[in-house]
Structures are given as structure tokens and as C-alpha cells.
Design a protein around this nucleic acid. Structure first.
Lengths: 298, 298
DNA sequence: CTTCTTTATAACTATAAGTTATCAATTCAT
DNA sequence: ATGAATTGATAACTTATAGTTATAAAGAAG
């Protein structure tokens, strides 16, 4: 039993067919027959119940399939770590962040690059769930997110905290106000972004506490879209304060909500079990050191 | 990179030498040189800093070594699970138990065997720590222990609870008493078994609470040895009640300790992630069903 | 009953994993 | 210092195996 056999076996199980699996693996079909035959001989049990018109896993096959998946994933991770190990000093940092920190991160990269010119960075914009998924599969080294999850054993480093503010169109009835209370928002139409599902929950609860359910008319993928919907008078939205500083525009009003104290914490997150080459530790340090300063700049 | 390479690499790292590793792997030394050479070529980095008189892992080598160990362990587990899968209905159950349940378990096996005559059982006597270790490495399917640990994700099923009693030599000053209090044990000499380290701790604390530290003169491996030391007048000991029923002897007295309420819980323990063939589930059921009855028989 | 699809078998080839023999470099003892 | 001993690398060769193509066998579908 080696990885090659497991890969073959796994592919057949996924394809439900020898022929198709052979094509996918870029080998001939008899080669696959052989692999499985010898695997079955080695393990002393049949793995597939096969006929010319149907193929399904036996009980032992089912067990091996589960393990094979784990092994293949593990090997994937090993290759990724070894790539990092090979490229010490000149490698690539993969970073995933929630979209609203696009501007924040470009500053970080500037500072980082001047210190580590040989290291390149690949920054991807991902939703909070994808950040978790990509960290788990070793596809990104670092994430920037506002949702800390205890269920995995990631390490979350809080970078900064910020308030939420209310964003309204230029001609909105709040235009001359600096601050309002939650109850004033009754009968308003809301726009929320999927990304900000954390604020969404807490905000709805806060509304319910003062006696109404906010009507959410629009759901957008990104904060930017939410913002542009607001600017076009389609509703109002609650957004993190830093987002405004990083996306200047005059076509909107910003109002503080006095009795909504909820804050958003932004974290740098990574997998501590994974080998992280020195530049990444560097990046973590820089992030910690400059994060506040940058946000304050608004 | 296949398991063969990883196995070779791992063995060299453990031996600190190509030559010795080659002997251990039953292959020639040049074969090993080749494996490592091609592995290094594949990964694009050197794994060992080698000279004729010293060998040590490089940084990437160190990372790969850690992973290789995990992979090899994982493969070991897969082989063990596949063996179980192959032998459904006629396989072997490996069980580890703390020694004091020897008699208890022999009854369980009798009942189990009459229902599953084709399944053989291998029962090993292990300390509580070894039970954990062997469960982790898939070397035993089931354990019987009195120490439940939250740190791993094993499943512990409480089988029964029992009191601890005081065991004294036949001619001891307590011989005409049915029960005593902890304070009466001041100035006595104690014998403890290593296995029962749970009772040991709680008992010493109970003594300290009433104002003295018990003097422990003997430490034994097994409860049986502790018992025979007691019978020979070398001290007194605190043992689980069931142990007496299962080891009849007239050369000792049994005394209850009125103000020592600590009970011992005995658990059946297993790894829920592991594939457990039907006979093992059967064994679990039987254990649950008959455990109390058997202990009551004393 | 023929045709199509799918897996298994047979015969062969190329690759790579192992072998032995030998070399080169370094340590160690005298 | 120098020869013996130890250790890893290299070369040439062998063997095992993972792949190939061609084809057979079995079952489903028209």
C-alpha cells in the first residue's frame, strides 16, 4: 500500500468507474485494474463490488476510502510545507483576507516588501468561511478576518477594534445629525453584506431589544456593493468605521448610533501547527506593530 | 515522495546514519543513498547535512521528519483498521485493562465467546497510561480503566462504581471492628500500588484534611502484591471493594472507612473515530448489561 | 442477437528500486 | 604523519513493478 495505490483507489471511488478514473489519472484502464487487484491481495479483502455495469465500495473499501482521503490531504499539506521550507528567504506568502481590509493590507505589504524584497506575496480576498477552509488546507499562510472561531485550533491575534457606524444616502432624513439611537431606525430599509454576518446578527438583536425587527431588503456579497447601494438611495447600512476611511466618497452620510456599543475586532489568524518560515513571522510582527497606527490615520 | 521514501528517510533520521539505517531496513546502503538523493531532487532541498563522520537534519529535513513520523503512524493505523475490516465475524478483539479487573473480565469473555465463538480475544494487562497509549496507536480496541481523561477524545462509558475499603493483616488492632474513621489511621504504615494512583492522591488528601500525612512504606506494581504484603503484616492498604470479591483469602481483614466517601468509577473506553467491527459493539453491549450483576455477586 | 460498455487478462516495455563492487573523504590510533 | 577503519557516493548491472497495447469476457440495451 503506497500513496500511488491510494490515489488510484480514491479516484476510482470518486468516479464510480475504472474507465473514467483511468482517464482522469492519465493512465490506461488495465493499469488501474492491476493496482486494485494487488491492493486487494495485499489487504486480503475486496474493495469494490464490480460488475460490467455497476461499481460500489465494499465495507472494507468504504473504510479505506475514508483513510485514503485523509492520507492524500496530508500529503498535499506536506508538499506545501516543503515548498515553504525550500523557499526560505525568497518564498511566497499567501494571505487571505476579508474584502474590507483591502486597503489596510496594501499598506502592510508595502512595509513588509521594503524589509523583505525577495519575498513575494499573494493576497486573496476571501469570505470568513473560505479563510478557515484555506488555512486548513494550507492554501494560505495567514488570514485577516473579523470572525474568531474556537472550534479549530487556529491562533487569532487581535489587531484592532473599531466601532460600527450607520451609512445613509446624502439626502437622508438623518443628514444633519451626528448621532441617533437604535429606535430611530424603525421603518428604515437595510442593506447588509454577506461578509458582515457577524454585525448583522448582533445588530438585529439590538433592534429587537428596543422593540422592532429591521427589514433587510438587500443582501450583497461585499461591503463595497452595500455602500454603493446606499449611495444610490436604496437603503441604509451598518458598516465598520475603518471601511469609510479606506473608501472615501462624498455621496453618503455617516451617523453614529449612540446605544449600539458593539465593536468589531479584526484578527490576524494562522495555524500554529504549520511550519511558518521567518518572513511570515516578520509579517506577523509588522502587522501587530503598525496596525493601530494605520487605522488611526483615517 | 511515497511512503517507502518517507520510511527510509525517517529511519535514517532516527539512526543518525545511512549504514545503520540500511541494515535496519534490510536493504543495501547505496539503495538508501539513492532514495534520499531522489527525494532531495524531488523536494528541491537537501534533507541531511552529511559528511563521513556526522549526519544531521537540515531545517527542511527537520520539517519532513516530523511529517514522516505522522504519515508512518497513520499508515500503521490504516493497516490495523483494514485488518479488522477483513476479519469481520472472525477477527480478534484486543483489550487492555488495568490489572485489578482480571477476574471481572474473564466472566465477560465467557459470555461474549458463547455468543461469538469465531472471534478471539487478546486481553492485556496494562497500566492506565499504557491503555491510553495503546488506544491511540490502535493496538487495542477497548480498554477498561478507572481513569477518565478529557484531553483525548476517547469515549468513556462508566460500567460501575464501587467503594474503597481498608485491608489489614489478620492480627491487626482493627480485627474486631467493622468500620473506622480516617483519623484512626494515624501512625499506620501504608502500602499502595502504582496502578491505583487515583485513590492514592484522594486518600492522602483526605488524611491531610483530618490532620496527618500517612506514611507510605511500600509501593507495588499491582494490587495483588499490595494485598500479599498486607497479608504478611507489612502494613495496611486501601483497595477497591470488588478486588476482594474477586481475590478470596482469609488472611486479611476488611474494614470500612466511615468518613472516606470517595468512589472509584470503572470505565469501558474506546476511540470513537476508529472503525469498530460488529463483535466489538457486541462486547460493549454485553459489558454494559452484565457489569453490575457480576460485581454484586461478591 | 447484436452492439455497446465496462472490467479482466495476457504479453510486452520502460522505469525505478534494488544489488555488488569500488571510490573518496574523514576520523582515529599508533 | 600515515595506514586502517568507517561512512557516504558513484557506477554498472539485475530484478521487480508499474505502465503500455491488444484482446477477451460479461452484462446491459436496443
Amino acid at each position: 500500500m503506497d500513496i500511488r495505490s491510494l490515489k488510484h483507489f480514491h479516484t476510482i471511488a470518486e468516479c464510480g468507474q475504472f474507465t473514467r478514473a483511468a482517464i482522469q489519472l492519465h493512465i490506461s484502464q488495465p493499469a488501474l485494474s492491476n493496482t486494485i487487484k494487488s491492493l486487494e491481495k495485499e489487504l486480503g479483502c475486496t474493495l469494490f463490488e464490480r460488475s460490467t455495469k455497476s461499481l460500489k465500495l465494499t465495507e472494507p473499501g468504504e473504510i479505506l476510502y475514508k483513510h485514503a482521503g485523509n492520507v492524500l490531504e496530508l500529503f498535499d499539506k506536506i508538499y506545501k510545507e516543503m515548498e515553504d521550507a525550500r523557499n526560505v528567504g525568497k518564498g511566497k506568502i499567501n494571505l487571505g483576507m476579508i474584502e474590507s481590509y483591502r486597503y489596510f493590507i496594501s499598506h502592510m505589504i508595502g512595509i513588509f516588501k521594503s524589509k523583505n524584497p525577495a519575498v513575494s506575496m499573494k493576497v486573496r480576498e476571501l469570505g470568513p468561511k473560505d479563510i478557515v477552509k484555506n488555512l486548513e488546507s494550507f492554501d494560505i499562510h495567514l488570514g485577516i478576518t473579523s470572525i474568531a472561531n474556537d472550534h479549530n485550533n487556529f491562533k487569532y491575534i487581535p489587531i484592532f477594534q473599531e466601532n460600527y457606524v450607520l451609512l445613509t444616502p446624502p439626502d437622508h432624513r438623518f443628514k444633519n445629525l451626528n448621532s441617533i439611537e437604535i429606535i430611530d431606525l424603525k421603518n428604515e430599509t437595510f442593506i447588509h453584506s454577506l461578509e458582515g454576518f457577524k454585525i448583522r446578527e448582533t445588530f438585529i438583536k439590538a433592534c429587537e431589544r428596543v422593540g422592532f425587527s429591521p427589514s433587510v431588503e438587500f443582501e450583497t456579497e461585499s461591503l463595497e456593493t452595500a455602500c454603493s447601494l446606499v449611495e444610490n438611495g436604496l437603503g441604509i447600512s451598518v458598516v465598520p468605521e475603518s471601511f469609510l476611511a479606506l473608501n472615501p466618497s462624498k455621496r453618503r452620510n455617516v451617523v453614529f448610533i449612540k446605544d449600539f456599543a458593539s465593536k468589531r475586532t479584526v484578527y490576524l489568524v494562522y495555524q500554529p501547527e504549520r511550519y511558518l518560515p521567518p518572513p511570515i513571522q516578520d509579517f506577523i510582527d509588522i502587522t501587530l506593530q503598525f496596525s493601530n497606527e494605520i487605522i488611526v490615520r483615517k
